[in-house]
Design a protein around this nucleic acid. Structure first.
Lengths: 325, 325
DNA sequence: CTGAAAGCGCTTACAG
DNA sequence: CTGAAAGCGCTTACAG
C-alpha cells in the first residue's frame, strides 16, 4: 500500500489539510515547527505525492500533450527536447504522440491526450489536418501551435521569423560570387516552408524554384534526376538538404565546390554532415520556451524569435571544426 | 463543466455503474438495448472518459514513463518512436523524460514519473547511475530496461544480441580484403558497447582497439588526431561513426576507398550519410515490442532479437540507392 | 442484467 | 495557524 497524506498526518500529529499545505507549499501558511514535523514524517514514511489524486480534485494533471509529426526527424526531435526542458522547468510532464504527418492519427492522438486530462496541448500541426484546437479548447485544455498551424486557424502560433535569416543566406551566397541562387521548396507553399520561399522571393535574386516532397529520400531523388545541378541552392528544410548532400555524394558532385548549399532549420545534425551545413538556424529553445509560456498563460517576453545564419562549410567557407559538446 | 458518467446515466435513464460497464466494455454484461441508449447519450452529450478519475479508483493511470539518455540522439529517437508505437497499440500513453546521460537527472525524472502514477517505466539506463528499479518496484510500478541496464541490476533487460551481427561485419570486411580490422569503442567496456567489443574480440581478427568518448564530436576529434587512419574499422555506435565520417570528410580521407567503415546501431540516419553507412542494425521495433510486453506482464515470444548486418556503401560495396520512404 | 453506495487520495472552502 | 468534511469522477464489490 502506498503511503498517503493521512498516514503522514497521523505520524506528524496534525491534519491532512496541513500536510497538503506543506507538500504544496500553500495555499495556507503553516507554522515552522509543524512544517518540520510534517517533512520529517513524510521522509520517514517515504511519502510520495499522488499527482493523480491531486489532479482529480484540483483539475490540473501536470501533464502536457505534445503532438509532433515524427520524433525521428532530427528537427522535431530537437524541438521536442527543448519542449521537454521547458516543460520540466515548469514542473510539467511531457506526453508525446507522433502524428506521422497524418490528420487522422493526429486526431486520435489528441483524443487520447484529452482523455488523460492534459493541462494543455502543444502541437506541430500535420499539414491538411482539421484544426484540432477548437474541440480541445472546448474541453478546457489550452492549445498552442508551434512551427506549423492548420491554415485558417486563429489559435496562437509560435514560429520563427525566417525573413532576415533567409535574406542573410542569399546575401552570403552572393558574397561567395553567386549571381543565381535557386531554392528547393516543398510540394506546396503552405506553412513555414512557404514563409521561407516568400523570403527567398523577396530578395529578388534570380534563380529557379525547385520542389520535392519533404524528407531525405525525395530530395535525393530529385537531385539525382536533375540534368544539371544548381551552382547555389537554398533548401527549405534540413531533411531535404541532407538528401541533397547524399545525392551529391553518390554522384560525385562536390559541395561546396560545384554546388554551394545552405539549409534552413539548422538542427544539431547539420554540424556533422559531410560537409557541415551552413544553415538558417531556427531558435528552437526560444520557440519552446515561448510555447510553454503561452500555454501556461504566462507573459511572453521577447517577441517573435528570429532564425539566424550559422556559417559552416557547405556555402564555401572554410571548415569550422567540430563543436565541443 | 465536463460531461460526466452521471450526466450520461441520467440521459440514458440508467445508472452510473452501467455507463461504466459500457464505456469499459466490462466487467459486467449490459443488455444490448441499454448499451445502445448509453452510447447514444454519450455521443449526444459529447462525453469523454476521464482517465484521471478512472486512474485514482482503479490504480492504473494508462501512462508509461520512458526515460532516455537523449532523444536528440537518432538511435534513441528511433527507439523512442518504436516504443511509442508499441505503447499506443496497447492503449498506453508515453511520458518521456531525458536523463542527459546523468544519474541524478535520471533519478529526478523517475521520481516525477512515479508521482504521476505511471503504470510502468521503460528505461535506457544512464551509465553509472544507481539502479532505480529497486525503489520504483517497491511503489508497485514495474520496470524494464532496454538497451542498457545498470551494472549489477537483476531487473529485466531487453537488448539485442550483437554477436552474430558484429561477426558478420568482420567477415564482410575480410571479404573486401582487409586482414586487419580495428574497433572504435567507448571509454569503457560497460553495457551494450562492451558486448560489441567482446564480439569483435571473439572473431580473433587482428586489429587495434581504439577508444573515444561517445558522441560525434569526440569521435571526430579522435580521428582528426590520428597519425594514420585505419584501413578498416568497426565503430561501436552510429554517433561515433558519423563523427568519423565528418572527420574523414574534413581531412579528405576517402570512405570507403581509404577507410572501410561499418557502424553499429543502424538508425535511420545511416541510410543518408555520405557515404551511406553499412551497419549492424539493432532490431529496434522488436526490442520496443518486447519491452512493452514485459512491462505489461504479457508473454514475450521470440527470444533475444538479433542485430543483423545492413550493407550499404561505407564498407566498399556499391552504392545501394536511397530507400523509398 | 441493473442500481445504490463506498471509496481511491487528494484540495479547498469553511469554521474556528 | 489548524482541523473536520465535502467532493473531484470514476470503479467495483454488494445486493437485488
Amino acid at each position: 500500500m502506498a503511503v498517503t497524506m493521512a498516514d503522514v498526518a497521523r505520524r506528524a500529529g496534525t491534519s491532512i489539510a496541513v500536510v497538503s499545505y506543506v507538500v504544496n507549499d500553500g495555499p495556507r501558511p503553516v507554522a515552522a515547527r509543524t512544517r518540520e514535523r510534517v517533512i520529517a514524517a513524510a521522509a520517514e514514511l517515504g511519502y510520495r505525492h499522488n499527482r493523480v489524486a491531486a489532479a482529480l480534485r484540483s483539475g490540473s494533471s501536470g501533464l502536457v500533450g505534445v503532438v509532433l509529426p515524427d520524433t525521428v526527424n532530427p528537427y522535431f526531435a530537437a524541438l521536442g527536447r527543448r519542449l521537454e526542458e521547458a516543460l520540466t522547468a515548469s514542473g510539467k510532464l511531457m506526453v508525446v504522440a507522433n502524428s506521422g504527418y497524418d490528420g487522422r492519427r493526429q486526431a486520435t492522438a489528441i483524443e487520447a491526450l484529452l482523455g488523460a486530462q492534459v493541462d494543455g496541448l502543444i502541437i506541430v500541426s500535420a499539414s491538411g489536418a482539421d484544426d484540432p484546437a477548437g474541440p480541445a479548447t472546448e474541453e478546457g485544455a489550452s492549445v498552442v501551435y508551434v512551427h506549423h498551424r492548420p491554415p485558417g486557424s486563429a489559435t496562437t502560433l509560435v514560429a520563427a521569423d525566417n525573413e532576415a535569416g533567409v535574406a542573410a543566406a542569399v546575401a552570403h551566397l552572393r558574397e561567395h560570387g553567386h549571381a543565381r541562387i535557386d531554392f528547393l521548396a516543398g510540394p506546396t507553399d503552405e506553412g513555414p516552408v512557404g514563409d521561407r520561399v516568400a523570403a527567398w522571393r523577396a530578395t529578388g535574386v534570380p534563380g529557379e524554384l525547385l520542389r520535392s516532397a519533404f524528407g531525405r529520400a525525395a530530395a535525393a531523388r530529385l537531385v539525382a534526376g536533375l540534368g544539371t545541378v544548381p551552382r547555389a541552392l537554398v533548401v527549405a528544410t534540413d531533411e531535404q538538404a541532407v538528401g541533397v548532400l547524399a545525392a551529391c555524394g553518390a554522384a560525385g558532385v562536390d559541395v561546396p565546390g560545384r554546388l554551394a548549399l545552405i539549409s534552413c532549420d539548422g538542427s544539431p545534425e547539420t554540424a556533422f554532415t559531410v560537409p557541415p551545413l551552413t544553415a538558417v538556424e531556427q531558435p528552437l529553445a526560444e520557440m519552446a520556451r515561448q510555447s510553454v509560456r503561452h500555454l501556461l498563460g504566462e507573459p511572453v517576453p521577447g517577441g517573435t524569435p528570429a532564425a539566424t545564419l550559422t556559417v559552416r562549410r557547405s556555402c564555401g567557407c572554410p571548415h569550422p571544426g567540430f563543436p565541443t559538446p
